[in-house]
Design a protein around this nucleic acid. Structure first.
Lengths: 163, 163
DNA sequence: CACATTAAGTCAGTCTTGTTGACATTCCAA
DNA sequence: TTGGAATGTCAACAAGACTGACTTAATGTG
């Protein structure tokens, strides 16, 4: 947690090393999204739909505000996506019991099936990368990613694991 | 290169672990782009302009086809971005000497200045993340990112380093 | 030389995903 | 009971991607 880097890590962080990291992140992110994108093209959905399905699947019963905070978009933008998913019978929106203003979101069977196919494609890609790199590399990967997150996003990310 | 994982790595790659990796990648990518995005809003440029400036800076004299391959967009899409950058005097397009059909791209002084401010903001963010995570984590991070790349993109990524 | 191909640029139209702003509805809580 | 919060909706717009068709200029080849 020291703010002062060691001589070695200071040496390590040349602009060139950082630039390579930036480019690696850029190219890798494209690989990261390509598998689900391939499934999505053809059916009339995009990445925004995938993201909504993912997080609803991850935390079923989540209300709209929570999902908005996670996705970091405006409610108008999310609403368009959510509306099509609800109309198409992939997502169910239930009025809250404690607070009836809230809408709680759930995947229908059909929604869960699509989410599963998308997430399986993405996991397969991730699994291949993890295996190529090995467990120790994966631990480092996760550490750096967490360090890159905005504190608020990191909070939301951690909350997903803790329920 | 073995297709059969060891017992340990098999244990490691639970769906939950993979899902956390996927989410980490998603949240981290948002942190990754936020610093340059902040500079870009206000001036009338977006991420597409940033990417073009970055790679022209990285490989000055690059022709349009090469940049198209790196960015993975259509020429119509790139052209819109490139045209504004040239009109605004940030990028210079020189007719090729060997092959006069080609246009070679260079940053002007002004273009280099903007690129520098964008890349410094992004590097600062990356540097902070790297320092928090430590050198060993960074090595793992880089390894996993490279494993995630599409082979063609990895080729382009590597070519950037080798000149 | 004539013709095909390549590199680059352009025009027109479309789609997804994001944005603002304005407004209605519902319902909780002080 | 009234103000504010949560939600939803309408309209307009912008960035950034796409396809398809086409031009121009330069190059390569039969």
């Amino acid at each position: 947690m020291s703010e002062v880097p060691t001589g070695e890590s200071l040496l390590f962080l040349t602009d060139e090393q950082l630039r390579q990291g930036i480019e690696a992140m850029y190219f890798a992110y494209r690989g990261f999204t390509s598998a689900p994108d391939q499934i999505l093209e053809g059916i009339s959905y995009g990445r925004a739909h995938h993201r909504a399905l993912h997080f609803i699947s991850r935390a079923p019963g989540m209300n709209v505000n929570r999902l908005l905070a996670i996705l970091g978009v405006t409610k108008q933008s999310l609403n368009r996506v959510l509306r099509t998913l609800i109309e198409d019978g992939l997502v169910e929106s239930r009025v809250g019991t404690a607070d009836k203003r809230e809408r709680h979101l759930y995947l229908t069977e059909e929604g869960a099936a699509l989410e599963k196919s998308l997430s399986e494609a993405q996991r397969a890609q991730m699994r291949a990368a993890y295996r190529k790199a090995g467990p120790e590399a994966v631990a480092g990967f996760r550490q750096v990613l967490e360090s890159m997150m905005d504190p608020e996003l990191k909070r939301l990310y951690s909350a997903l694991r803790e329920g």
